[in-house]
Design a protein around this nucleic acid. Structure first.
Length: 276
DNA sequence: AGTATAACCTGTCTGC
DNA sequence: TGCAGACAGGTTATAC
């Protein structure tokens, strides 16, 4: 489910929430042990009892909780995982964290794809999942030089944009959307994009993600912010999920295709297979 | 090394 | 109405 804008929305909400009051872990309960990828329930309970949440970071689609005991929890919400501050919408609870001020944080995931890693804070970057991630929009590493270097690949551009080891944070929704916005056909070979097209993508990616963050993410199905509220960016999607509807730019018909087992949406007349 | 496919889960929707 | 099959925001192990 959550791509970069959704995870960033959750991170900001949780940051506000810990700013309101120091959140000290009183205990935690794990309901599905497979959630824990590199630790046991006992280790988690031992380590985090009494610890305060100091800060929250995000790397790509991973949320990183930094605790006062110099350890961190790295969480990926998979396809449909969500973090909620009340138990009104729970469907399949994976984890409950109990805090000293009587608040509770629930990890809910009907599809069991969420994953939790537990590491020393100074070793977060060494986690396999984190170390493999590519350049991240909104950071100093996201230069045009770095971006254009990773376009040096025969891969189709849509597949490349989904490859987290190249660019980290885009998922199936925003990959389709950004290619529409930039007028690039999803099957174009990455290393055959023109300089202008590469520049449009380089600007277009953070622009689109920034707008989606402003609208607090895209709720198509399960995604919710920590208070249960939906995002609004689904109202601004131009192609994703709009098969058969009209293109807002040219009036043509939005089409659906498949790339690497995932749906891609495009406007064939705005996104030509030929170069500019 | 780099890239493509299958597998992981479970609820929901579609079409026969 | 019932049921098989397809599909869903993602990642990763395995196979070329």
């Amino acid at each position: 489910m959550p791509e970069l804008p959704e995870v960033e929305t959750i991170r900001r909400s949780l940051s506000d929430w810990i700013r309101k009051s120091r959140r000290q872990v009183e205990g935690l309960k794990v309901f599905r042990e497979e959630l824990l990828k590199n630790s046991t329930i006992e280790e988690l309970q031992d380590k985090f009892g009494g610890a305060f949440i100091d800060s929250l970071e995000r790397r790509a689609k991973y949320l990183i909780f930094n605790f006062s005991n110099h350890h961190s929890i790295v969480l990926h919400l998979g396809m449909e995982g969500r973090l909620l501050l009340d138990n009104k919408r729970l469907e399949n609870v994976q984890l409950i964290v109990y805090f000293g001020d009587n608040s509770e944080l629930y990890l809910d995931d009907i599809r069991n794809y969420s994953r939790l890693y537990f590491v020393r804070s100074d070793e977060v970057g060494e986690l396999n999942s984190i170390s493999k991630l590519g350049i991240e929009p909104f950071t100093n590493d996201f230069t045009f030089e770095n971006f254009s270097a990773l376009l040096d690949s025969r891969q189709e551009i849509k597949r490349l944009l989904l490859d987290q080891s190249k660019i980290a944070g885009l998922g199936n929704i925003y990959a389709s959307e950004v290619l529409f916005i930039c007028g690039i056909h999803p099957e174009r070979q990455a290393n055959k994009l023109t300089m202008k097209e590469a520049q449009r993508l380089y600007k277009g990616i953070p622009e689109l993600l920034g707008k989606a963050i402003e609208k607090r993410g895209t709720t198509i199905f399960k995604y919710r912010d920590i208070d249960g509220s939906k995002g609004e960016f689904q109202n601004y999607l131009e192609v994703y999920g709009r098969k058969g509807k009209n293109c807002g730019r040219c009036g043509g018909t939005i089409e659906e295709m498949e790339q690497g087992g995932r749906k891609t949406y495009l406007c064939p007349s705005c996104q030509s297979l030929r170069k500019d």
